[in-house]
Amino acid sequence: MSAPIVHGGGVTEAAARFGGRFEDWLDLSTGINPRPVELPPVPQQAWHRLPDKLTIDGARAAAASYYRTDGIQPLPVPGTQSVIQLLPRLVPTGRRVAVFGPTYGEYARVLAAAGFAVDRVERAEDLGVDHGLAVVVNPNNPTGRAFQPAGILAMAATMAANGGVLVVDEAFGDLEPDFSVAGQVGAHDNLIVFRSFGKFFGLAGLRLGFVVAADTVLDAFREWLGPWAVSGPALVISKALMSGDTQAIAAGILERRAGLDAVLDEAGLKRIGGTGLFVLVEHADAHALHRHLCEAQILTRKFDYDSRWLRIGLAPDAEGDRRLADALRRGDALRPGDALRPGEC
C-alpha cells in the first residue's frame, strides 16, 4: 500500500508542532460546514438495538427525496471512503482506470494500490477503450471545476460503450443540486453516484454517505460492507435532517463563504476555484503562507503536487474571518521563500 495521504483536519498534529491548545486553533483545512446543525432527538432504542429494516428504509426514503433520485433508494454507507475502498472490485482485470484530476487523492491511491494503472485525465475526450472505470468529482475538490449533467451523462455513455463504469462523487453537491446526476442513474446502469452527508450538515464525525446506483451495484456494496454497516443513530439523524428545511443551512454556508471571499480579496490573494464550502487560492509560495498561518494557529490545506495552491475553508463566524484577516496582514506573511518540508504543517 502506498503512503497515506495527508488530509485536512490534522489540528492535533499542527498544535503539537506549532504550539497552542487544540481548542484555540482555527481549522480552515476542511470543506465542512463550520456551523454543525442542531441534532434532532434520537430515540434510546436507536442506541440500544441494532438498526432494523424500518430504520434503514426510513433513511433511504429520505435520501431518495433529498437527492432527487427518481425512485432509486440510495444505500447508506459509513462514509464515502468506505466505498472508495471497494472500487477495485468493480474494475475488470487488465483494464486501466481514469481519474479526472487533480482531485481527492484517495481514488488514485486506492486503485493504484490494488494494482491498476491510473491515468489522470482532464477532458471527456481522454476516456478510452482501455478504461474499465472512470472517476469524476463534481463539483471538484479542490478546484471547484463542475461538469454540466449533459457532459457527465455523455461520459457515462462513452464508458458504457467500452464496457466500463463511471463513478461521480457529488460530495460537494448539496449547494449545487442542478449539477447532480443522481436522478439519471435509473437510465444508466453503469453510473454510480456517491453523496456525502457530513459536509453540508457539518457532521463529518457521523461517518455517513449514500450511494445511488443500479440495484445490482447496491446489492454488491451491501454484501461487501456486511450487515449493520451504518449505525442506528446515524440513520435516524439523517432521516430527520434530510426531511427538514435545509434552506437556512445553505444560506448560512453562503454567508460564511462571502465572509471568506472578502478577507481573501482584501489580502490580495488570487481566488482560482472552490465550492460553497472552500476556496482555492494561488500564491507564489503557498507553503510559506501555510506555515505563517500555522504560526498564528490557523490551519489551512496545502498540496504536495502544487506549491502555489492553498485551500481555505470557512470560519464559523465573523470573529474567525477577522482572525484570518489579521494573520494575513501581519508581518511578511506573503513573502515567498520559506517552503515547508513534506510532512510539516
Score class of each variant (00 low, 15 high):
A284H: 11
T103L: 04
A240K: 02
Q81Y: 14
N190H: 14
H7M: 08
W309S: 04
M242L: 13
L208R: 00
L218M: 11
T80G: 14
L50A: 14
V217F: 09
L264N: 06
E319Y: 09
P34Y: 00
D70P: 00
S243A: 15
T143V: 04
G115S: 06
Q297L: 08
R21K: 13
V83D: 05
G79T: 01
Y66R: 14
T55A: 09
V263S: 04
A171P: 01
R271F: 04
A98I: 08
A327P: 02
N140T: 02
A187W: 11
L314C: 06
R145N: 11
P139V: 05
R21Q: 12
S243K: 07
Q73D: 13
I192D: 02
I84G: 12
V11P: 00
P102G: 03
H292R: 11
T30V: 14
I298Q: 03
D321R: 04
L235M: 02
F197W: 01
R68V: 04
L269P: 00
R308K: 11
L75A: 01
G252Q: 09
L54F: 11
A59M: 03
T93Y: 09
E295I: 01
R96P: 08
G259A: 04
A64H: 01
A315K: 03
A161F: 11
A250M: 07
G343Q: 09
D70I: 10
G163H: 05
E38A: 14
K239P: 02
R271E: 11
F179E: 07
F278S: 12
F179Y: 14
G9D: 01
Y107A: 03
L208S: 00
A288Q: 07
R195A: 08
A258T: 07
G164L: 00
S29K: 12
F278N: 09
D130G: 15
A234M: 00
A61R: 13
F221S: 00
L86Q: 07
A220D: 13
I5R: 13
R68A: 09
R17K: 13
G101E: 12
H287K: 10
V11R: 08
V181T: 09
D119C: 02
E295K: 05
L269A: 02
V136H: 13
T103H: 05
R257H: 08
K270A: 15
L225D: 02
G244Y: 06
D215A: 07
E319Q: 14
H292Q: 08
H283E: 04
G226F: 00
N141A: 10
S231E: 02
L310C: 09
P336Y: 05
D24C: 12
W47A: 05
L225E: 00
W224G: 03
A14K: 01
G274P: 05
G58P: 07
D338L: 08
D332M: 12
A62K: 09
G58S: 03
A315N: 06
A63S: 02
A248P: 03
F210Y: 07
E295D: 08
R17S: 14
V129L: 15
M242E: 02
R291W: 09
E223S: 15
G273A: 01
L280Y: 05
V77H: 02
G71I: 09
Y305W: 13
D130P: 05
L206A: 12
D332R: 13
I152C: 08
L166K: 05
A98M: 07
D332L: 11
D174A: 15
E266Y: 15
P40I: 01
L225G: 01
L90R: 12
A204H: 15
E122V: 13
L254K: 10
N138Q: 06
E282W: 03
E344Q: 15
N138E: 10
E295H: 06
D52V: 06
